[in-house]
Design a protein around this nucleic acid. Structure first.
Length: 289
DNA sequence: CCCCTCACCTGATCGC
DNA sequence: TGCGATCAGGTGAGGG
């Protein structure tokens, strides 16, 4: 999404903003009028991401005197069912909760439709702040507690492994903890655990260092492959900014594969409920040890 | 401080 | 065709 938006929004100006459902502003501190006022007329500087958060740093404001050095950004989180669709000005999408019409110097009049069925996602205007692990760049305040993702050149392997070893919980719970590492959700957690042959409920403090390192390496491989294939699309809901599906669902070895033979040993993949969600794994290859 | 449960929501789909 | 049950890829507040 970030890569798809970047060329279309960088250098563009927000012409108008329409909020169709205020619940999609759950992360915005203020009413929808405030959101609209602070966004309309602003320039978009770039498209940034950390973990599952995307934000578009905003340029000069038409609204009364922007505070000295207090830069802001439009923050986007897709939640479980969000989409950002890049359209022309004539195109509407069903379930659009927020609409941004923008003007780009090269690409002309464009439209960003924020579509979200379950409304777990949201948009917000947030202040950009420096954080300890972002010495040079800044992040929105609501992203400050989110760790870097393992593909980030500044991801700290040693810190991650140390924190993992200190934890007292199941390893999948740790993988899903965005303050430990970001970007891993239910699908990629199951895939990385399968690849590393680790059971989802293996206590983190019993993972040997080599296995922890192997798991981190597998997380990286899964994320890199999924990114390369445009993400994981099971249906029309999971699409990029142009409405196209990703292909990683064809590469899944565990997630959603219950009943099918394990690609390694041929025994059936099973599904168990864990943390109010499905965990998919090979009961033979992935045992608590 | 760490860990865990639960609330937050809608719409698509499936079985009857 | 209609209806109810079920399911879904995340996050963070708050209790223990």
């Amino acid at each position: 999404m970030r890569a798809g938006l970047e060329p279309a929004v960088t250098g563009a100006t927000v012409s108008s903003v329409t909020v169709f459902d205020e619940r999609s502003l759950r992360r915005h501190d203020g009413p929808s009028e405030d959101f609209v006022d602070r966004l309309a007329g602003r320039g978009i500087v770039s498209a940034e991401r950390r973990g599952k958060f995307l934000w578009l740093p905003l340029g000069s404001s038409p609204v009364p005197e922007p505070l000295e050095g207090a830069r802001e950004a439009l923050v986007v989180h897709l939640g479980m069912s969000g989409q950002v669709l890049l359209r022309d000005r004539a195109t509407d999408d069903r379930l659009t909760r927020i609409r941004l019409d923008i003007e780009h110097p090269d690409h002309g009049a464009l439209r960003l439709n924020f579509v979200d069925q379950r409304i777990f996602g949201s948009m917000a205007i947030d202040r950009l702040v420096q954080t300890p692990d972002a010495p040079t760049d800044s992040v929105p305040t609501q992203v400050a507690h989110i760790a870097r993702d393992p593909l980030d050149p500044l991801f700290d392997d040693r810190l991650f492994l140390a924190r993992l070893a200190r934890r007292n919980s199941g390893v999948k719970r740790a993988l899903l903890d965005q303050t430990l590492l970001s970007g891993v959700g239910n699908i990629y957690a199951d895939e990385a655990l399968w690849a590393a042959r680790v059971h989802y409920d293996q206590p983190t403090n019993t993972l040997s260092r080599p296995r922890a390192k192997l798991l981190l390496a597998e997380v990286r491989l899964v994320l890199a492959k999924a990114l390369g294939e445009g993400g994981t699309s099971f249906d029309a809901q999971y699409v990029n900014v142009n409405g196209a599906s990703g292909y990683f669902s064809h590469s899944l070895n565990a997630y959603g594969q219950q009943g099918k033979p394990c690609a390694r040993c041929g025994r059936p993949i099973v599904r168990e409920s864990f943390m109010n969600r499905g965990s998919h794994f090979c009961a033979f290859c992935q045992r608590v040890r």
